[in-house]
Design a protein around this nucleic acid. Structure first.
Lengths: 216, 216
DNA sequence: TAGATTGTTAATCGATTAACAATC
DNA sequence: TAGATTGTTAATCGATTAACAATC
C-alpha cells in the first residue's frame, strides 16, 4: 500500500527519471525504472497504479509527464519553507546543504539558544530561540528540522507543534512523540552506524564460515 | 528474521535499557521493553530468541546482562575506527559529532581534496585524499563515512573498498553499488525531507476529508 | 499453590512478485 | 498481424502478532 517504502520508491523513480531525461530519453518502460532503482517491474507498475498513474500499453510512460506527476504527488510542485532549530555542528551544516535549495526546499532561518550563534543579518539568519514561535506564525512555516541535544528535543518539538509546525525531521537521538495532526521522522546517526557495524560483522563471519550464511 | 528492522530494534532496546538502568531498574520484562520502543511484547521475545537471548520465566531479563549481550551482538563491545572522506559542511559536522565518541566510535581522520580543509595537526586531522589508501591499510580501518559531492561518491567508494574498507555510510544523494564482501548504507537527506513533506500533506488532506483516510 | 512470564509454534497480516488478459 | 507492454488479479513470501504450553 501507500506506505513509507512506497513513497521512498516514488522519490527514487523521480531521481532516475531526471537522469534518463538528461540522457535524452523521452519515454520509459517499467523495466527501465525497475532496473534503475533495483526492484521488479511489477512493483513499479503496482506503485504507479496506486496513484492512478497510467502509461500506454506498448508505449510505456512519458518521462516529462511522469516527473511532473510524481512531483505533484510528493508535494514538490511548490517550494517548502523549513526552519532549523539548533545551530550546532549538524544544524548549521544542514543550513548550508545545497541539495535542499536545489530540491525546492527553502531554509528560512535558524534558531539557537546560544547568543554566540545568532546572526540576524546573515544570508540565512539565526535568531534567539524565543523568536521561533512568532516566526512560525508570521511565515506559516509547517516544517522544522530539530538538531538540538537529546534532552531538549521533546520539549522543543512540543513547542514547535504548538506554534503550528506539522512535520519535524529530528536529528536528536531520541524518538519524538507527536500529537495527532503532526508527524516526526527521526534520523539517528549513531544508530545508522551501529547498524552498519553489525552487517559488516555478518559479512566478516560469512568469509570465515561461508556455510552458516544468513541474509543481510 | 535477522533483517535490518530487527537489528534496529536491538539498538532501540539497548537505548531503552540504559535509560531503565539509569532509573535504577535491575530487571525488565518483555512488556516493558515493548512499551518503551513501541512494539508488541511477542516481538521482543521473538527478537531475543533469534539471538539465543533468554530470560527467566516469571523473572524477566537482567538488564546488565542484556545490555552486555546486545552490545556484543551489535559489535559494540569494541571500539570501531571510522574515517570521513569529504570534509565539507556535513563531513566536518560528523567529525565533531559527540554521540559517536560516546558510543565507542572513534573518528580517526578526515580526508579532503581541498588543501584549505587540510589540518594535519588538529585533534582529528584532515589529510589530502591521496593519503587515504595508506592510512586505511596502516590502521586497518574497515568503516568509512562518505560526504563528498554525488558525482565523486561512487569513485571514492570504489577506491575505499579497494583499500580495505568493508562498510560505508554514505551521505551523497546516490545509491552506492558495492562488490560482494562490502556494504553501503545510504542516508539521503533530501529524500527524508521529501518523504516527510508527503506525509504532512496526507495529514492535511485528512483534516479536510477525514473519511478518505489512508494510513501513514 | 495460583499467577505471571517466557519461549515457541501457529495464525494473521501486509507487501512484493508472478501471471496473464487486455490492448496498443 | 505478431509482439510487447501495461494494469490488475492472484500467489507467494516474510515479518509481525497471537496463542498457549512450559515453568518459575
Amino acid at each position: 500500500m501507500k506506505n513509507r517504502n512506497c513513497i521512498i520508491r516514488l522519490s527514487r523513480y523521480k531521481t532516475a527519471l531526471y537522469r534518463l531525461k538528461a540522457l535524452g530519453f523521452v519515454k520509459v518502460f517499467s523495466d527501465n525504472l525497475a532496473e534503475a532503482i533495483g526492484v521488479m517491474p511489477s512493483q513499479v507498475r503496482k506503485d504507479f497504479s496506486l496513484f492512478g498513474i497510467s502509461g500506454k500499453k506498448r508505449g510505456g510512460y512519458h518521462i516529462d509527464a511522469l516527473i511532473e506527476r510524481l512531483n505533484e504527488i510528493l508535494g514538490k510542485d511548490k517550494v517548502h519553507t523549513v526552519i532549523i532549530v539548533g545551530c550546532g555542528h549538524i544544524g548549521s551544516a544542514l543550513m548550508k546543504y545545497r541539495k535542499f535549495e536545489d530540491g525546492g526546499i527553502k531554509i528560512a532561518a535558524g534558531f539557537d539558544i546560544d547568543p554566540a550563534k545568532h546572526a540576524q543579518d546573515a544570508d540565512i539568519p539565526v535568531f534567539p530561540i524565543d523568536r521561533v514561535k512568532p516566526f512560525i506564525k508570521e511565515h506559516n512555516v509547517e516544517l522544522a528540522i530539530i538538531a538540538v541535544p537529546d534532552i531538549a528535543a521533546q520539549q522543543v518539538a512540543d513547542m514547535l507543534i504548538s506554534a503550528g509546525i506539522k512535520g519535524i525531521l529530528n536529528f536528536a537521538p531520541i524518538r519524538l512523540r507527536c500529537p495527532e495532526g503532526s508527524i516526526a521522522h527521526n534520523i539517528n546517526l549513531e544508530l545508522e552506524l551501529e547498524n552498519l557495524i553489525y552487517f559488516v560483522n555478518v559479512l566478516k563471519k560469512k568469509r570465515v564460515n561461508p556455510d552458516e550464511t544468513e541474509n543481510a
